[in-house]
Design a protein around this nucleic acid. Sequence first.
DNA 1: TATGAATACGAACGATCGTACGGTAACCTT
DNA 2: AAGGTTACCGTACGATCGTTCGTATTCATA
Lengths: 220, 220
Amino acid sequence: MQEQLDGRRARGDESRRAILAHAIDIASVDGLDGLTIGRLADAAGHSKSGVATLFGSKEQLQLATVTAAREVFVERVIAPARVRSERGLSRVSALISSWLEYSDERVFRGGCFFAAASVEYDAKPGPVRDAVISASSDWEDYLSLSIEHAMTAGELPGLDDARQLTFEIVSFLEAANTRSLMYGSAAPYDRAATALRSRLSGLGADPARVAEIGRVPTAS
Amino acid sequence: MQEQLDGRRARGDESRRAILAHAIDIASVDGLDGLTIGRLADAAGHSKSGVATLFGSKEQLQLATVTAAREVFVERVIAPARVRSERGLSRVSALISSWLEYSDERVFRGGCFFAAASVEYDAKPGPVRDAVISASSDWEDYLSLSIEHAMTAGELPGLDDARQLTFEIVSFLEAANTRSLMYGSAAPYDRAATALRSRLSGLGADPARVAEIGRVPTAS
DNA sequence: TATGAATACGAACGATCGTACGGTAACCTT
DNA sequence: AAGGTTACCGTACGATCGTTCGTATTCATA
């Protein structure tokens, strides 16, 4: 916290950033609709009207929250996988492990933000729903593309449809996230890892890559 | 509607039943927390105070809604599978098909009630969460038991852990439900059926039983 | 140095929330 | 036939919702 140089413009952005960090946490537990300007203001140490004017409206706050969550997701899931693995099956494995770690570590109090938001808005039309779908689609597109790279490299000889495998992977990940929260247990992550190792083995994937799945990369 | 015999006691139960039918629909879209006594009263054609006195409190209304949804689930998923199939792999296949049909038919406007409620309450402690978890657990227990029957009958020679397969099945079912709602498409159900047929084939299941999965049993 | 824009606040708006109270009408039990 | 229970409504309560307004303060710009 090196303020005092103040900078009204810069401090506004900083306030938004800090408030949105709380917003993601609250929304991951109570949903984007359960997210309330008053409670958010209390949590962030601002006045209710201050938060309201910073974001304009509740819907704009929700949209900003989705965008902020998206950035955290990229930072905690996509970026690490890109850093520590190359294109192909290795990266697919890394993405899966990063996702499991991201959920298990409770980066957000209520688990994966998008797993919650997708289900909350899957039947509620509007701009918020569109934003949630857009973010989810981008993630799945990236995962599909990574799978396709593995396919063209001949690392998944038994697979002919990257989208099908993508569906199966995200099914396991999100189910593990929800069940871990429901039962307060990390066991569902093992279920997901087991299922995915078995599936990839059946597709003829390199056993070394398969064995990496679900293993925590660092001891932190 | 054969009223007129009235019966104050019986009519109260009938009112509760009718109101709960609306409650499940609303909750499947807006969540059990988004379910509001005022809106529910309007939807059911009652007064707000009438609904409030019939259920006592919002929490009791939520609990009654979970119970009502549970009954519909049994009626639409469990019961048909028990009628048209015998214990063992045949019933497992029937349960999967029934579930897919139940979701696809939009028995509730917002898709599977429990898929929505589980995610909504996975991080929110309280009696409602306990009821949702209890219902979900019972469904998974029943599915696990059915798988165990298939195992002891030698119909799944490649499987050694019924709970693992249960996790995988419900992962696909719920993911298909959410994605179908998100994209307004039935294609995710095909994804789930494809994944499950492939998985069961890999376990050495009878191809005839495997082929039944995802096939609509009647032309209705 | 004057002007516009933005942060942040307190206060208040109408609307809706869950809940409580009182009253009327109808059924059920005794 | 009387008394008790239940259904259902209208009304009202305090709390909270999202939003708006006025105002003080500070930065950026002309």
